[in-house]
Design a protein around this nucleic acid. Sequence first.
DNA 1: CAGTATCCAGCTAGATACTG
DNA 2: CAGTATCTAGCTGGATACTG
Lengths: 127, 127
Amino acid sequence: MYDAFLAVCPSRQLLERISGKWVVLILSALGSGPDCTGDPRPMRYSELSRLLSGVSQKMLTQTLRALERDGLVSRTVTPTVPVTVTYELTDLGLSLHRLMRDVKAWAETNMDDVAASRVTYDEAGAR
Amino acid sequence: MYDAFLAVCPSRQLLERISGKWVVLILSALGSGPDCTGDPRPMRYSELSRLLSGVSQKMLTQTLRALERDGLVSRTVTPTVPVTVTYELTDLGLSLHRLMRDVKAWAETNMDDVAASRVTYDEAGAR
DNA sequence: CAGTATCCAGCTAGATACTG
DNA sequence: CAGTATCTAGCTGGATACTG
């Protein structure tokens, strides 16, 4: 029915949204906590902000909003003072989390092989 | 050893490279042919160009070069006239292909749910 | 066929300042 | 704490023209 190979297919735009480092990292984090080994659990905005080092407030908020709009995360506001906001995976988000977690793990696992390949490639080019 | 949550970790940059629609689509295509159901097989430049509708020559070439440099695809030039160039997954590329194929499939499978969620979200915002 | 080279519009995303 | 708003540098990526 849908085919992301087609530029006009809505799934192409969806693929565009869900590919991107911040989506991968946010979904990885929410799915299993900071160490990526536990069970899915809600996380606070500030907790995410600290965990994903280098993320700007703007990108974090923007990405979380997009994920919320797409039904992948839910946003809960607790009226404490100051306010507490938690983000949690929906069932839909959880299904994507599993893939994103694997992608993040792939990058970490194969970093050495990729680095070695780059050295070889660049050396060949220099000659 | 590596942790993509850390901005300074090399795996963060690698994650940045492999997240992106063209990487997902190219690896999906190379891994299992146009219909994404067959076995991995080499594909020609023009074949990829036709399959990934909307991709510019620049992006296709640029992405293929990056994937080649990272050791995910191999490039073979056959000196016919005109020249024939084929791209094929390496073993490393094949391992990432499996993940990327799932990501593409996820987008296609869950497009309807996401679209429905967007409608709900936007309606709530309008109120 | 399979690129390379160049130009440039537009979006991404960081920095900064401010707020309920 | 959890944002919003604004400004902007610079990168992404599309369009176009050319080539072995």
